[in-house]
Design a protein around this nucleic acid. Structure first.
Length: 1149
RNA sequence: GGGCGAUUAGCUCAGUUGGUUAGAGCGUCUGGUUUACACCCAGAAGGUCGGCGGUUCGAGCCCGUCAUCGCCCACCA
């Protein structure tokens, strides 16, 4: 035995060491780095077209395959090079092609493409990318479209915190595509990075500052806070990148970007500047969602509505000088009484009767169409509205409408201000009291009413959420306190008409979790009309494809609203808006100061009576003599910078080689919640800045849910650290499980529990314990920490990792693969010691070979295959056919993001077909000196392709295996990460062979079943014969040995004339009867019982088939289907008869 | 209010354009130290595919409807 590592191969795959080792290896070899200097040569150029290179490197001419084999350094001397030059990868695959060629020729199937792979001329069929990745395996024209380059930009994780399983999923799915593309020979770049996540990050740091030091940002100031946030960012960026690396992501880490770094900042400035120049930026007083905790406006998308218990307060507004027959009070209902201090009108509908009638009509027609269960509710609603007509409400409103038209006023309670009663259609006679208070500065709808009616807008709030001087005696109170006081005062003044308890939907800031106050504020906007339209068009005309398609509608609908984009945030963490204000200057002064300056634009703001100066490149504190320019305090919305991510990361606005080569990128893989916020904006920004789409495809992946079906989030505490899962099961298992669960329309539900590190008991994760920093194991009563542990003493505890069934399955798969490889390696190794037994071991005559050494004889044993190899055995043809099918389908599935399908196929093929059948079959050949070399070649051949196909999903275990295989076959590429992706040999696909092999599987199963059900001891050898057609017997005869090794059953005969021995178990199958000789093991009555059961089952099927065939079916169904049914019936009847005959025979005993 | 998705074995999920007897993993049961793997091997049991109606020779799949669950968007004095 050679003293190789094979003997050291552990029985179980050890993920931790492999992960560390190969991460470092990939990093050191720079396998994922793209180097565009010196300038990229045309990567589709064939190596043979470049004489200099061919001359330089004879190995690539490959007139001697042994040469290639002998000198691995030559083959892949520079992995980075390989990545850049697919022609080289193809060069290597020529050897592979030759092997395949030999095998295939032997099988009698000649692959047109592969037959052309003549080692003398490696370029003949391996010139273009298409030849290593033919259409058939790649689906569409994507490759040509991308012209040989393929790029993915990572959806940059927020630096708010560490990654959770959702990120693990997102990045695994990206890595799968990226690794496959790289192996396919694309010039592949995956750009990593992180997002500064303005509001979210500042909120986290501010909250922490307050918790730990009881300080607010105003206490420490802008500079100090920003510094603190940078520190936070550095910490979490490092953590995130570390996590991504641990996940095996094959990013080019040398290109890591941050949305707030200089490169991105430059892109942001240029984008803003161009928008400004194109007059797409404006500023206006708008009602914004004010977060009183963070003291910034947040966009609608950052607001969530929560149902809370609240009240309706009915407040009496006294009418000023009421006339006779006029009401003394106007009553309005509100959920926010304190806002009355900012009221500037009370509205009533101008024609309440008509409005009410319309409501009634609408309701009636809705009731007519409504489903039964909703009718009752609608009807009671209708009743209430109708009642208004008769109960005096309508009469009252009509009077008020007249008063409004008369210009009458009401007295605003508490403030003692007179405000007009106005007629406006916003007031709905069917709702509340029919009258509504108008607070233009604090309610979006009222704001519109205010504008329509020229009402004053009184802002009663300070930015910190306290009331300002407009609130008079309430000044300085917080909203909550003011509300209580207002209610109290109203009650005391007898102006509180009524209160009603009610649940209301209250807007909350998603970031600070505090209630949102609508507030009138200055705000920067981007006009969306034209930008949104361009983003709609690219999807409508198919330039960008959204997968799954159903998400397209949401994208289009959102953009179609064309709501202007509020881009300002009153934060300190972010890109500061590049606008400077200057009040006391003139246009001519500006012209003079900025003569010939392309990077400066300015505009007079009428409303603010100030010049806006926008600078693309430089800071402008003293750009104009004698004037100080003041920069806008606000920063830009985070999405403003992430919208540029696809091109800013490639160096835009500079026309870099990267931008040239990799833009547009290939696919964007992301989460559905940010389809609009991020994806849509990337599309419009990409089009606006570069004129091109940012990516060809958008793949939206499922969401990870916990066992309760809830999405994972920090606030719920149910987020799971992928590193913790990987620590327990291995990264590959994590990746495998996630990919396996990624189906088209189902979210991924993962039931995870803690494993006690002390006693290994499973501690269920509950809504209670999932937020705790440490948990006490109910079994051993000891504590363990969770991912939330922060305190020093908690951190001392051992961690309770998260475990889940899905990960176990995936880990088991990795281990299975590992052991299959281990087995193949063991056989290869043992064969190398008795290597003189096969015709395919022709001595080599290359110069290198003249000094043979041990190492060499081992390494070449399998590949010294100059003579034709003959794969004439059914099982070899079968596995080659299956491999080709799987290769084709897996490629196609990954290309179309059908991850789960691909994983299932790979799982089943690896486990059931390769391991359970093929490996087991081959075992009996391995002990035969005439067959063992070819058999082990076959094993290696299939294993190599399988390892490659699995590599994108499980990179570590496959690399580990690959490197072991390289010890046996130095012709393999330096890393599986840059190995050539397998090409399906379509001509090896043979449905007939697969069908025939099924017969073998059926017989084997029948025998195993017979053994198991009769309790025949495993060591007892049994014998059987099969009554079948000559075709089947010819096919099965060569496989006799396998029944012995796989079921310890000896075949005594095949064919039409076979008869059951006296004491036999009969298994009737379609087209054949199997007779298992049971002799002394026989229990006659049990056999009869078994057969009777079988007969009644068959009888059921037969009857249903007969019914079917006696119906219209034969007339209306396609003939092929009918024929199939007839055949099936025939088989069933034969089986039935066989069982019947067998019973009769048994009864005679 | 508008939109989307789901409902299949005890559990978690697959199920191609409708076509033999609906699959997998885990769990359960039976039996196992076979030249890799007990994170394993062999075998078994377990389903009126949420309900009802329709289209069809034929429905888990298509249409309608009801029920339940989840998500997203919008609005609410």
């Amino acid at each position: 035995m050679n003293n190789t590592t094979n003997q050291e191969l552990p029985k179980q795959y050890e993920p931790t060491t492999a992960q560390e080792k190969w991460s470092r290896f990939w990093d050191e070899k720079k396998l994922f780095q793209i180097n565009l200097t010196p300038p990229q040569t045309n990567i589709t150029t064939n190596i043979a077209d470049d004489p200099a290179r061919v001359a330089d490197d004879p190995a690539h001419v490959a007139n001697d395959p042994a040469h290639v084999v002998n000198d691995p350094a030559h083959v892949v001397s520079d992995p980075a090079h390989v990545v850049n030059d697919p022609a080289r990868v193809v060069g290597d695959s020529a050897l592979y092609g030759k092997i395949l060629d030999n095998v295939v020729k032997g099988v009698g199937i000649v692959d047109q493409d592969c037959a052309q792979v003549d080692l003398q001329k490696p370029d003949s069929s391996c010139v273009k990318l298409d030849s290593i990745c033919p259409k058939s395996s790649c689906g569409d024209s994507q490759h040509r479209r991308l012209k040989g380059a393929f790029c993915v930009v990572i959806p940059p994780p927020n630096v708010t915190g560490a990654l959770h399983l959702g990120h693990a999923l997102n990045n695994t799915l990206q890595d799968i595509i990226v690794r496959m593309k790289r192996m396919q020979g694309f010039n592949t770049l995956w750009i990593p990075g992180v997002d500064h996540a303005g509001i979210a990050t500042q909120a986290v740091v501010e909250r922490r500052l307050f918790e730990q030091e009881k300080l607010t940002r105003h206490d420490i100031g802008r500079e100090a806070l920003v510094k603190k946030i940078w520190n936070w960012k550095e910490k979490y960026q490092a953590r995130i990148i570390e996590q991504l690396k641990a996940l095996g992501c094959s990013c080019d880490w040398s290109r890591t970007r941050f949305t707030l770094d200089d490169v991105c900042a430059k892109a942001v400035r240029h984008f803003f500047f161009r928008l400004f120049q194109d007059d797409l930026i404006y500023r206006g007083k708008r009602l914004v969602n004010w977060d009183t905790f963070l003291q910034t406006a947040v966009s609608d998308d950052e607001v969530t509505h929560e149902t809370v218990a609240g009240h309706f307060w009915y407040i009496k507004y006294p009418v000023v000088n009421p006339k006779r027959n006029e009401p003394e009070f106007v009553i309005v209902a509100t959920t926010r009484p304190e806002t009355l201090l900012g009221d500037t009108a009370v509205a009533v509908h101008p024609d309440p009767e008509a409005a009410l009638n319309k409501v009634i009509d609408d309701l009636r027609s809705r009731i007519a169409d409504a489903p039964e269960k909703e009718k009752a509710e609608l009807e009671s609603e209708l009743e209430k509205v109708v009642l208004r007509k008769t109960s005096g409400v309508l009469a009252n409103l009509t009077t008020l409408a007249e008063m409004a038209k008369d210009g009458r006023k009401v007295l605003l309670p508490l403030a003692q201000r007179e405000i007009p009663l106005i007629a406006d259609t916003w007031a709905k006679p069917d709702k509340g009291t029919g009258c509504v208070k108008i607070t233009p500065a604090h309610d979006p709808n009222d704001y519109e009413v205010g504008k329509r009616n020229g009402l004053p807008m009184i802002n009663i709030l300070n930015k910190d959420g306290t009331l300002n001087k407009e609130a008079g005696s309430y000044e300085g109170l917080k909203i909550k306190d003011a509300r209580l006081k207002v209610i109290d005062d109203l009650t005391q003044n007898g102006l509180m008409h009524d209160t009603e308890e009610r649940t209301i939907e209250l807007a909350h800031s998603d970031r600070s979790k505090t209630p949102i106050e609508p507030l009138l504020n200055d705000q920067w906007f981007v006009k969306m009309e034209s930008l949104a339209q361009s983003a709609i068009n690219t999807v409508n005309n198919g330039e960008i494809k959204i997968i799954p398609e159903r998400y397209t509608k949401g994208y289009i609908d959102w953009l179609a609203e064309k709501r202007d984009w509020p881009i300002g945030r009153q934060l300190w963490w972010g890109h500061r808006i590049p606008i400077w204000y200057c009040k006391n200057t003139t246009e001519s002064e500006l012209k003079q100061a900025f003569a010939n300056r392309e990077d400066i634009a300015y505009k007079w703001d009428e409303a603010g009576q100030v010049w806006w100066i926008c600078s693309r490149d430089e800071e402008l504190p003293s750009a104009i003599k004698g004037h100080t320019l003041v920069q806008e305090e606000d920063v830009l919305d985070t999405w403003f910078s992430s919208a540029l991510w696809t091109h800013s990361t490639l160096g835009w606005p500079n026309q870099t080689p990267e931008l040239e080569t990799f833009y547009p990128t290939g696919v964007l893989i992301t989460n559905r919640d940010i389809l609009t916020l991020w994806v849509a904006r990337m599309v419009l920004a990409g089009k606006f800045n570069t004129g091109k789409i940012p990516f060809h495809e958008v793949y939206i992946h499922p969401k990870i849910l916990d066992k309760y079906g809830e999405g994972m989030s920090k606030s719920k505490g149910n987020g799971v650290d992928p590193v913790s899962v990987a620590a327990k099961f291995g990264t590959d298992a994590l990746r495998f499980a996630l990919a396996y669960l990624t189906t088209e329309n189902q979210d991924i539900r993962l039931a995870l529990d803690f494993e006690c590190p002390h006693c290994n008991a499973i501690v269920e994760q509950t809504k209670q314990n999932r937020v705790l920093p440490k948990i006490k194991c109910p079994k051993c009563q000891k504590h363990f920490r969770t991912q939330w542990a922060e305190r020093e003493d908690d951190l001392q505890l051992p961690e309770g990792v998260m475990v889940g069934e899905r990960f176990e399955t995936a880990r088991n798969f990795c281990n299975k693969l590992w052991n299959a490889a281990r087995f193949v390696l063991l056989t290869l190794n043992s064969n190398s010691n008795s290597a003189d037994n096969t015709p395919d071991n022709t001595p080599d005559n290359t110069p290198d070979k003249k000094q043979p050494d041990k190492q060499d004889s081992k390494q070449h044993i399998v590949y010294r295959t100059k003579n034709e190899l003959t794969a004439e055995l059914l099982e070899d043809k079968w596995i080659l056919s299956r491999l080709a099918t799987v290769t084709r389908d897996v490629s196609q599935m990954f290309e179309t993001y059908r991850y789960a399908d691909a994983m299932r196929l790979l799982y089943d093929f690896s486990w059931d077909e390769f391991c359970s059948f093929y490996l087991e079959i081959v075992k009996s050949r391995l002990s035969d000196v005439r067959q063992n070399n070819f058999a082990s070649f076959m094993l290696l051949f299939v294993l190599c392709d399988l390892v490659k196909l699995l590599h994108p999903v499980v990179p570590f275990v496959t690399e580990e295996i690959w490197q072991r295989l390289r010890e046996v076959d130095s012709g393999l590429e330096e890393s599986v990460a840059v190995a050539a992706w397998p090409v399906a040999n379509e001509t090896a696909i043979n449905p007939q062979i697969e069908e025939q092999f099924k017969i073998f599987q059926e017989i084997l199963r029948a025998i195993r079943d017979t053994r198991a059900s009769r309790n025949i001891p495993p060591k007892t050898e049994i014998s059987f014969c099969v009554k079948c057609s000559e075709v089947v017997s010819k096919l099965m005869k060569p496989m006799e040995a396998y029944f012995l090794t796989m079921a310890r059953a000896k075949v005594t005969g095949w064919g039409e004339s076979q008869k059951a021995p006296l004491l036999a178990a009969t298994v009737p199958l379609a087209g054949m009867d199997i007779y298992v000789d049971l002799s002394e093991l026989m229990d006659v009555s049990a056999e009869i019982e078994k057969l009777e059961k079988e007969m009644s089952k068959l009888d059921g099927f037969i009857k249903s088939k007969q019914t079917k065939l006696n119906s219209d079916f034969t007339q209306k169904a396609p003939p092929a289907i009918v024929e199939k049914e007839r055949q099936s019936l025939n088989d069933l009847q034969n089986q039935y008869n066989s069982a019947k005959n067998a019973i009769e025979k048994l009864k005679q005993i």
